[in-house]
């Protein structure tokens, strides 16, 4: 572990549309908030270097589209995730209710080796708004029922709790990383082989050179 020069932590942010995924990511990475974001199409990511317990790690934070129908794309982006952030909007009960669905979706698509202990972190965003509709208690209860997921109430707009939340995310992701490190090599290689032979055969069909 110590010899590894580079630790890349892949973090996926999921949640209903307009719960503030893009804003959270940008608040954390760029320390900026703007209300100019559009609905995310496809996927984007930002990277940030952070110190986690005296180690420098690079967080690669993936922002995804909120509409669930776009999750079919997920596989390409979810693969190799070290942590998944589930975001809901505390003013929107619907977005809270969707958390289960997002969690399941992620576990299916990313198929982590140990789904029961895969690190999720739950963020209740937009606490700066007045018309709150999901209580802290309710959210905590849900998190408790899922093996005690860490829960943070954040405001991307006012930078409330964002730093703390992502610190936990980084730490949990790092723990996950070191856990899977031993057998990390194998599944990847098998996947790669499968992919390349597949493509090679199709390649020979198409290309004469």
């Amino acid at each position: 572990m110590a010899t590894r020069k580079k630790v890349l932590l892949k973090v996926i942010i999921l949640g209903d549309s307009s719960v503030g995924k893009t804003s959270l990511m940008n608040q954390y990475v760029n320390k900026k908030f703007t209300n100019q974001y559009k609905a995310t199409i496809g996927a984007d990511f930002l990277t940030k270097e952070v110190m986690v317990d005296d180690r420098i790690v690079t967080m690669q934070i993936w922002d995804t589209a909120g509409q669930e129908r776009f999750q079919s794309l997920g596989v390409a982006f979810y693969r190799g995730a070290d942590c998944c952030v589930l975001v809901f909007d505390v003013t929107s009960p619907g977005s809270f209710k969707s958390l289960d669905g997002w969690r399941d979706e992620f576990l299916i698509q990313a198929s982590p080796s140990d789904p029961d202990h895969f690190p999720f972190v739950v963020l209740g965003n937009k606490v700066d708004l007045d018309n709150r509709a999901v209580s802290t208690k309710r959210a905590q209860q849900w998190c408790q029922s899922k093996n005690g997921l860490p829960y943070f109430e954040t405001s991307a707009k006012e930078a409330v709790n964002v730093e703390q939340a992502f610190k936990t995310i980084a730490r949990n992701a790092l723990a996950q990383e070191s856990d899977v490190e031993l057998y990390n090599e194998f599944p990847d290689q098998i996947k790669l082989d499968g992919g390349s032979t597949d493509n090679r055969s199709s390649g020979s069909d198409n290309c004469a050179c």
Binding site: D16, P93, G94, S95, K97, S98, D100, G101, W142
Partner: peptide, 13 residues
């Protein structure tokens, strides 16, 4: 109710 409300439906409330 919670578990049923996964359908993200606004009316179930």
């Amino acid at each position: 109710v919670l578990s049923q409300e996964l359908s993200n439906d606004v009316f179930e409330d």
